[in-house]
Design a protein around this nucleic acid. Structure first.
Lengths: 356, 356
DNA sequence: TGTGTTTCAGGAAACGGTTACAGGATCAGT
DNA sequence: ACTGATCCTGTAACCGTTTCCTGAAACACA
């Protein structure tokens, strides 16, 4: 019997339970039981084992433990990127709740690439995570739908323990917990706030057909226009990604090509608002004196900009995702679908039109 | 022989390699070999196995695989929180490089609690991660030193594969890779920029004795004063955490209690700068007309504020940490210690004193 | 002292893979 | 037809735990 050397590949020799047992002069069963909590061992035995553990600096192998049944539970979160403030907060929420539930949190990023997302999900499945939380919107274009088949197949295998965070269901045959936030409602409130202040030409910055988050917010914008009986001018909807530089670009181009044909701006998120504000400033336009603006997210930028914006509890989304995944895991049944609300935070970036 | 049911606890029945083998009419060895890449199997056998894998939706158990030797490599990152932009970028860098090296990234947060940090390190050890990257500064107070013993013990066990990111060494007996950034150098450049513009009363916002990052930046601030032969006034150093609200508070209190006895501000990071700018604005003071300000980090806020600031490549830090950990793992020897440079980014938040 | 109960500890199977070793076919060369 | 070499596949040991089942010692009680 050749015993392979237990080399973990990192040059570290780890002591095993057998070595602890030998040193303590007991069987491995005894060591295992003593390690895993309250077992009625004689004080003498217990002390001997503990000393051996101490001396050998023994740490149980999580893989072996998982294989033997007592798996160290873990939950995976897969997102585009962790630098975007929104995602960062969601990740924070997931991590916090995961820790609170005594689980480990695995994280993987995809850069928005569906291919990498698929690979990640497979990887997480191999790790036997209890749940995979997918966050971030995915473009619902043709390519996406073509790959849907494979997605659905791979994801259905983890069954209901799949959680979709702020993104559309993958298909009717793929059961999944869904946690959304009320994009349309928030956008409605934001736009209404501007309209109520007398603004009628409201620029909508950052639309991006096919991206569900953007679509939801644009929908809310339009609903608000309709509710206030303000005509909808498609030319006021500007396409762009929800990033600072895009906000800057969109406003820059708007000011360069067209006339200053708006008095207010609804930015699809705070980053876009920030970029837009800078572009306005460079054109000599002031907020809120010359232009009113409302953002979305209530993240860091809104403090610096003193921006009126739509507040979401980003961490709450992450926490809820974990909680629902776990609850649903024990309860079963049809997976829950939760929509988290938003509310408007008034700061100083909006001024009534009559007063301007 | 009673075969326990392979229940992973999540209600999902996962198919095993044995089931695949049975269905394909081959042995498990063949399945294993075919799954793990290029093995000279007959096309017929290969096809049969692949079909069985497909039908059963077989995914190998990562734990079993790890136990058997071919471990799925992983790297752990432990940090205070992922919402702080700096940490988020570092985490992003770690994640990116980890993925590039074909590893999985485990993430854990501690909330700055040394106790939780210790628990995390232990957890990561159990997971047999190749390296544990510790990022974020830890207060070097008495309590910390008291616990040092246990830290050192637990951490030394992962040996040189411990990476310290922007934090002080744990002790002379604990070998670790260290990746730092030049806080003092950056602060020196920032402060010098203000001094060269003719400012002599430069407020330093966010000092916090014992916290190495803050200490480094304050040191650079003082060195710059000395180099420019400007007297150092301790009253100009204001203590506070490196957060937006703290920056706001510090400036608010300064303006409330004392006179406006400074013409420039060196904020220890961009968040603090943002809070300070808001407080100044509320007092009717403009940047840069009335007060010049320089930040540190060159993160999102500096775009909104058009802030002159010290640029660091936050992601680079994370990437470097992973790269060094892996390189050092194969090379051995004394662990490397790398210091990454910074440079000043000029925007519009500083104006020469003579012109104001 | 005999017997029934605890109390504590060990032996061994099982978890799901990988891989060294061995062996049966198939095939080419003589 | 015999011998080797070549190909492919199966058997079984092993990774490091947990835990069921069994058994010996110690104890209580009649």
């Amino acid at each position: 019997m050749v015993r392979r050397v237990s080399d973990t590949g990192d040059g570290q020799r780890r002591s095993t339970i057998r070595e602890v047992a030998d040193r303590a002069g007991v069987s491995i069963a005894t060591v295992s039981r003593i390690m895993s909590g309250d077992y009625p061992a004689s004080p003498a035995t217990r002390k001997r084992v503990m000393r051996a553990v101490e001396e050998l600096d023994y740490v149980a192998n999580a893989h072996a433990r998982a294989l033997a049944g007592t798996s160290a539970k873990s939950i995976a979160i897969v997102l585009n990127s962790v630098v975007s403030p929104h995602y960062a907060h969601v990740a924070q929420g997931v991590e916090a709740q995961t820790a609170a539930e005594g689980r480990l949190c695995l994280i993987g990023t995809t850069g928005g690439d569906p291919e990498r997302e698929l690979a990640m999900v497979k990887f997480m499945r191999e790790q036997h995570t209890e749940a995979v939380i997918l966050v971030g919107n995915v473009v619902a274009d043709e390519k996406y739908h073509r790959r849907m088949g494979r997605y659905a197949h791979a994801l259905a295998a983890v069954g209901s323990r799949l959680v979709l965070c702020g993104r559309p269901p993958l298909g009717p045959d793929v059961p999944a917990v869904v946690v959304e936030y009320d994009n349309a409602g928030g956008a409605f409130a934001a736009t209404s706030h501007l309209l109520s202040a007398g603004h009628e030409r409201v620029l909508c910055l950052g639309s991006r057909p096919g991206y569900t988050t953007a679509d939801g917010r644009v929908a809310g914008y339009r609903q608000a226009l309709a509710a206030h009986r303000v005509p909808h001018d498609p030319a006021l909807e500007v396409e762009g990604k929800m990033e600072w530089h895009e906000g800057y670009r969109m406003m820059k181009e708007r000011l360069a090509t067209g006339a200053h044909d708006f008095t207010a701006v609804f930015a699809l998120n705070d980053l876009v608002a920030g970029g837009a504000v800078r572009a306005l400033a460079e054109a000599g336009l002031r907020v809120p004196d010359d232009v009113s603006i409302v953002g979305f997210d209530d993240l860091q930028p809104s403090l610096d900009l003193d921006l009126t914006t739509v507040h979401m509890s980003h961490e709450e989304i992450g926490r809820t995702a974990v909680r629902l995944a776990l609850e649903h895991g024990v309860r079963g049944g049809t997976p829950p679908h939760v929509v988290l609300g938003t509310h408007l935070v008034i700061r100083s970036s909006v001024r009534p039109r009559s007063a301007s």
